[in-house]
């Protein structure tokens, strides 16, 4: 955990704070990394703690729609791949909670905030995964959007976050490929399979575009995050880049995107798409999506049902430590 500065070593707190701020500003201007023990503005710490914990929560809640298909995966190979993928997401949650802990908030507290409804997670996971093709669409579109968002985060100014993202992005690119492969197989399969694939792409397309966050003129925190080198590109820039990639890849799949307004604007050099339903986005964010209550209930249930196990592990560790100390004393 990031320790507060050791007070007894600091004759003048303000002087120290000033030196810290100078160092912080210098590191940011050099596009270098801030590490847990470095001085950082409180707002920087809070912004990162919020962003990293939301990201961690998204990985953990995001396990649920895919875990929903582990038991029914239609081949053993697909079952194994899906299990490995959902397991990766638990691993991503772990790296990210660890990165967030370096900012001073313990994992337990973050989990409690999540299940108390005080913390957010990516609203896309409040949509249901109702068919097998959703495993393909989630991998291709949702993980694809996540990668477009996360690759620039590998260069985020906060060291532990950037380093966690490097590893996560490597695994995410596997995830996206497996999603694409699921859709490709379905699109080249029976008419029913192809229909299932198109239906899933239709349902996940717009929510995946909304994963980049509100339009730039409605994204109040973006400017500061960009100044701090946490965020490197604006929401709309990333969204446009993503649309450009998908519009090519969907041709290989032999499917279509449910958007007939996609075009490349030569003047702005940006991909454009049909307007998104930001009212729906806000509704889902506010807790009124199809699965918000279900996702939270599952998380709460797992946490509460597991309390006795965590208590047992802690009690056993205490007993072992006590025993070891007693033996050492006797020896």
């Amino acid at each position: 955990m990031a320790a507060a500065p050791a007070v007894d070593q600091m004759p003048s707190e303000t002087q120290d704070e000033q030196a810290g701020r100078e160092q912080f500003d210098r590191l940011i201007s050099e596009d270098s990394r801030i590490e847990p023990r470095d001085w950082m503005p409180e707002a920087y710490r809070k912004t990162l703690a919020r962003q990293i914990s939301q990201h961690a929560h998204s990985e953990i809640i995001g396990m649920q729609p895919e875990a929903n298909w582990i038991s029914r995966a239609p081949s053993l190979k697909r079952k194994a791949i899906l299990m490995a993928k959902v397991q990766d997401e638990a691993g991503h949650g772990l790296y990210l909670y660890s990165a967030a802990e370096t900012l001073g908030t313990p994992r337990d507290k973050m989990t409690e905030d999540l299940i108390a409804g005080k913390a957010r997670y990516s609203s896309i996971f409040n949509y249901p995964a109702v068919t097998w093709a959703d495993m393909g669409a989630i991998g291709w579109l949702v993980d694809g959007a996540a990668i477009a968002n996360q690759v620039p985060l590998c260069r985020a100014s906060y060291g532990p976050y950037g380093r966690a993202m490097v590893r996560i992005c490597k695994e995410e690119s596997f995830h996206q490929r497996q999603g694409f492969e699921i859709l490709l197989e379905l699109a080249n399969g029976t008419p029913a399979q192809k229909e299932m694939a198109q239906d899933a792409v239709n349902r996940w397309y717009a929510p995946s575009l909304m994963m980049f966050g509100p339009p730039d003129d409605d994204s109040p925190n973006s400017k500061q995050s960009m100044a701090w080198n946490i965020k490197r590109f604006s929401n709309d820039e990333l969204r446009s880049r993503f649309v450009g990639m998908m519009v090519e890849q969907v041709k290989v799949l032999g499917l279509t995107l449910p958007d007939d307004e996609i075009r490349f604007n030569e003047d702005t050099q940006q991909w454009e798409h049909a307007p998104l339903d930001w009212d729906e986005f806000k509704e889902v964010l506010a807790g009124r999506g199809p699965c918000n209550a279900q996702r939270m209930e599952r998380r709460r249930e797992a946490h509460e049902d597991g309390a006795w196990v965590r208590e047992a592990a802690a009690a056993y560790a205490d007993k072992q430590a006590l025993e070891a100390a007693t033996q050492q004393k006797a020896a």
């Binding site: 909670y97 797992a302 196990v309």
Partner: peptide, 12 residues
């Protein structure tokens, strides 16, 4: 497989 997303700790 049922335990994945339901275990007492993420490590589990």
């Amino acid at each position: 497989g049922w335990w994945i997303s339901r275990a007492p700790e993420l490590e589990e």
